[in-house]
Design a binder for these strands. Structure first.
Length: 883
RNA sequence: GCCCGGAUGGCGGAAUUGGUAGACGCGCUGGAUUCAAAAUCCAGUUCCAGCAAUGGAGUGUGGGUUCGAUUCCCACUCCGGGUACCA
């Protein structure tokens, strides 16, 4: 019987759709399992074979969990706002919604052709007003929340305590005070501006070479009014929350790095000859005795002010150059240290010594206080700077036994590790940490600073406020009106969603404003008192819609509420979230932030959204290059006997692994794979390629391999003359149950490649035997079904079943069949396996020793040698150490 | 520079807590079937030596611990990802 996948697969896809086989009911009595894919951006290019990797993995688990009796929530949607549709609109005038819908239709068609068991009634599209109504609503919640440091919790703005002195200053002061506390605020921000995209980019969208990650164009600095979110207020919570999550360690590390917590102290330095203090942040207050100069950032408000008369022009010049430089190329800055002396001195509080204050751009305004005390002997950056400008270097930490100690003590080499303090006492100030180590030195110095009111222990985070607006059309409009009197107000809930206006032209407005500034009718509003206002013309970034979509899947059609709280309480958290590692920081951190705010406000029931996270690895392709290293397009390569040659030059080429790309013509489209081998083969190969979390190259021959496996399965199991009655052969029954066990534990551990291998092993045995019982056939079919569901449904119906097998109970392992009473031991001599022998499991060790040592095959290895040790590990190995 | 991950046959990859290295698949070789091919089926396939039995070597490199190391420890090489003057 022939395996006609092209006929079988569409038929079952139609059956599932018509019968709503995978519709999820909110049946609270069943145990739940919420399994989520990172939803795609529906690009015009359609799906590539990287998409179905994660989707297939989650689909296998979904189908397995259903058979295990779980109520499974497994939804799909589209993260459909974004720049490409808008750029296309600029070129052609086609409304982005039209392009987007077309792309979504294509994605849906492609995804359905893979036979994934999504509940399509829950499909979400971030550009749908029914959806972004609630994105706007969440923005309102952020705007109306402040963070209570003491409780470490977000609270409604109505509960914000108002200091009397602010109250006394009047309404404007009160509003400003409140604005300073809101999680969302509107302010002038130095932003990166991409003149090619005509939009601002968040810091994280700018690559280290100063180019925009979306278009590669160099970005420049610009000052613009922007919406920002105070995510650093949640830094500590976001850091702590990682501990209890079942996430890859690498992702946790990246988030930790991004949050960048550091502990240290702020210290005040009196400025000599001015009634000003210079506050610095340092993680090493213990090295105060080694501070030989100070540095402030060029943007620091004191920079110009403290410059001595004769240095004023130098300093101004430097500040100007630094500002210009950062516009042009940031990376150049890292190469060489530059700076200028202000002519002014500060007093080191630990010994009252005068030390020079410099301005240098290696100190950043955005971190700590924008000023540092420099300890060249024990900080590599300060060391470089001091060397460059001939500033004294005082060693105060004896490295003891370390290599190069003499150089370090002489200040010719930098030492950043632990040691024992020297030259670190002063009678006048009463601080003495000589002889202590780093940990004790830090502790004692901070105590001294706090006692003398010169500084205090401080925590700093690298994470910055989140720039939350873009100058684009195709994004969620902010539900905000700026009034002519300076007041800002939000739309009422009843006025949501605020729709995007229809536009003739999608080009940006004057001075880089969003295209929305052209929508005059939409733009201008008047309130009932005749006061005039202007709508916010910025739109939200693409992160907004993807920040909370997992919550909407719970109750996607609810127009009254963001979701029904009972349903949220039942389904959350997401039990397993699978997606690419490229979202390790931004999407996952932003989502966690919003979720924690919603949790604090009592809107969601869990502190964290995603209990378990897993990253699928990237799917790559083979590519070819010449001996000179030039890449050769796929269509110019010819294979002969496992070697590769250039079609035109005949040169032998080297096979390498590279990202799929249009230029190499090695992009694989799932539609083609399905047409040639079927969806089940595609699914199987995606999983059989290797471990889910590793990067691996696509190989067409590999698809043929798994396709051949399905062919063999079908030809054998669909042929009812191979299916008999009575008792199953012992060997077959045993392997069947071993296979159930293996497949089950492999699915639980996301090791799909070895699960498929086990299924192949069983199939090989069944074919070799030539006959199995119907029960064996049905059982095997069930454990195969999560992987190759179309084929499995087909076999299931051939065996006379009328209903889908999607909800058939998962087979139970019969432990009795797995019991062994003997084991074939590998026998080693000095660790080298020499022969095997079957021994009963209940044989005592001394008897085993006797049996082995008298075995004829052992004599060769024992001859003339003494048995020094006899190692016997039950059910593992026998090893004889001779010598 | 710093942090994280990886390296196993011709290829993708397997190997509970240290216990038979190379499961499974691809490719290749030989055979059956066929007029022939495709498809299918059977056998073989880490490398070296040997007709074979068999022996030797072998999991990026160099050391170490152990009866026994792909697995643990130390030092290093290469590849991939993240990050970058964060005081």
């Amino acid at each position: 019987m022939e395996y006609k996948f092209a006929e079988i697969e569409p038929r079952w896809q139609k059956y599932w759709e018509e019968n709503k086989t995978f519709k999820t009911e909110d049946d609270f009595s069943k145990p739940k399992y919420y399994i989520l894919d990172m939803f795609p951006y529906p690009s015009g290019a359609g799906l590539h074979v990287g998409h179905p990797e994660g989707y297939t993995a989650t689909d296998i688990i979904s189908r397995y969990k259903r058979m295990k009796g779980f109520n499974v929530l497994h939804p799909m949607g589209y993260d459909a706002f974004g720049l490409p549709a808008e750029q296309y609109a600029m070129q052609t005038g086609t409304h982005p919604a039209v392009t987007t819908n077309k792309n979504c239709d294509n994605f849906r068609r492609q995804i359905k052709a893979i036979g994934l068991s999504y509940d399509w009634d829950r499909e979400i599209n971030t550009t749908d007003p029914h959806y972004f109504k609630w994105t706007q609503w969440i923005f309102k919640q952020l705007y109306s929340t402040w963070f209570d440091e003491e409780q470490q919790k977000g609270r409604p703005i109505s509960e914000l305590p108002m200091p009397d002195e602010i109250q006394a200053k009047g309404k404007k002061a009160v509003n400003e005070y409140i604005a300073g506390k809101r999680l969302a605020y509107y302010d002038n921000a130095q932003v990166w501006w991409c003149s090619s995209c005509k939009t601002v980019c968040a810091n994280e969208e700018v690559l280290t070479d100063g180019s925009h990650e979306k278009c590669g164009n160099q970005v420049i600095r610009k000052n613009l009014k922007q919406w920002l979110l105070r995510i650093p207020h949640y830094a500590e919570r976001l850091l702590q929350g990682l501990d209890d999550l079942d996430w890859p360690a690498g992702v946790k590390d990246m988030q930790k790095n991004w949050i960048g917590k550091s502990t240290g102290a702020e210290v005040d330095f009196q400025i000599n000859g001015l009634n000003e203090k210079l506050r610095v942040y340092t993680t090493r207050p213990d090295t105060l005795f080694g501070a030989t100069y100070m540095v402030i950032a060029p943007e620091h408000q004191l920079a110009e002010k403290i410059a001595a008369q004769e240095k004023k022009s130098d300093v101004e010049e430097y500040i100007k150059t630094a500002a210009l430089k950062s516009d042009l190329d940031r990376t150049d800055l890292a190469k060489e240290k530059t700076g200028v002396f202000t002519g002014r001195y500060a007093i080191n509080p630990v010994n009252n010594k005068k030390i020079p204050i410099w301005v240098a751009d290696y100190v950043l305004m955005g971190y700590g206080t924008g000023a540092i005390m420099a300890v060249p002997a024990h900080d590599t950056r300060d060391f470089e700077f001091a060397k460059e400008f001939d500033i004294p270097i005082t060693c105060i930490l004896d490295p003891k036994d370390a290599e190069g100690r003499d150089e370090i003590l002489a200040g010719d080499k930098c030492w950043t590790e632990d040691g024992e303090y020297i030259n670190s006492s002063n009678e006048e100030t009463g601080l003495n940490i000589n002889g202590l180590n780093k940990e004790a030195g830090i502790k004692k110095t901070i105590e001294w600073l706090e006692k003398n009111d010169l500084g205090k222990a401080t925590v700093n985070f690298k994470m910055r406020d989140w720039l939350f607006s873009r100058q684009r059309y195709w994004g969620e409009p902010f539900p905000v009106i700026h009034w002519e009197d300076g007041e800002v107000s939000l739309l009422d809930d009843e006025e949501l969603p605020l729709l995007l206006p229809e536009l003739e032209k999608y080009t940006p407005g004057e001075a880089g404003e969003s295209p929305l500034s052209n929508a005059t009718e939409w733009l201008h509003v008047t309130d009932k008192n005749g006061r005039k206002g202007r709508r916010e013309t910025n739109t939200m970034p693409q992160w907004a819609g993807s920040c909370w979509y997992y919550l909407r899947f719970i109750d996607p059609k609810n127009d009254e509420k963001i979701f029904n709280p009972q349903k949220e309480n039942y389904w959350m958290p997401v039990d397993l979230y699978i997606g690419g590692a490229e979202h390790a920081v931004l999407h996952l951190l932003y989502s966690r932030f919003w979720h924690k705010v919603l949790f604090d406000l009592g809107i969601v029931s869990t502190d964290e959204p995603f209990q378990k996270l897993y990253n699928q690895g990237m799917i790559l392709a083979f590519a070819y290059e010449t001996s000179a290293g030039a890449k050769v397009s796929q269509d110019l390569v010819k294979e002969r006997d496992g070697h590769y040659f250039h079609k035109e030059t005949g040169e032998e080429l080297k096979q390498i692994v590279a990202k799929m790309s249009k230029s190499l013509k090695n992009v694989v489209n799932p539609d083609d794979v399905i047409a040639n081998y079927g969806a089940d083969s595609l699914r199987l190969y995606e999983m059989f390629m290797g471990p889910l979390d590793e990067r691996k190259p696509w190989a067409e021959n590999g698809v043929k391999g798994v396709h051949n496996f399905l062919n063999r399965v079908f030809r054998f199991f669909a042929d009812t003359t191979n299916i008999g009655d009575g008792d199953e052969a012992k060997e077959v029954a045993k392997l069947l149950h071993q296979t159930i066990q293996k497949v089950e534990s492999d699915i639980e551990n996301l090791k799909f490649n070895t699960a498929i291998s086990a299924l192949m092993v069983f199939n090989n045995l069944a074919i070799k035997k030539g006959k199995v019982t119907k029960q064996t056939a049905e059982t095997f079919n069930k454990i195969l079904s999560p992987f190759a569901p179309h084929l499995a449904e087909e076999l299931w119906s051939i065996y006379g079943n009328k209903q889908t097998l999607a909800y058939e109970p998962w087979p139970q392992v019969n432990e009795n069949l797995l019991k062994e009473d003997s084991f074939e031991y590998p026998v080693s001599f000095n660790g080298k396996m020499r022969f095997k022998t079957e021994l009963p499991l209940d044989m005592p060790k001394d008897e085993i020793e006797k049996t082995i040592l008298s075995d004829e095959r052992a004599q060769k290895w024992l001859e003339g040698k003494e048995v020094r040790k006899f190692i016997f590990v039950p059910k593992k190995i026998i090893n004889v150490a001779v010598g």
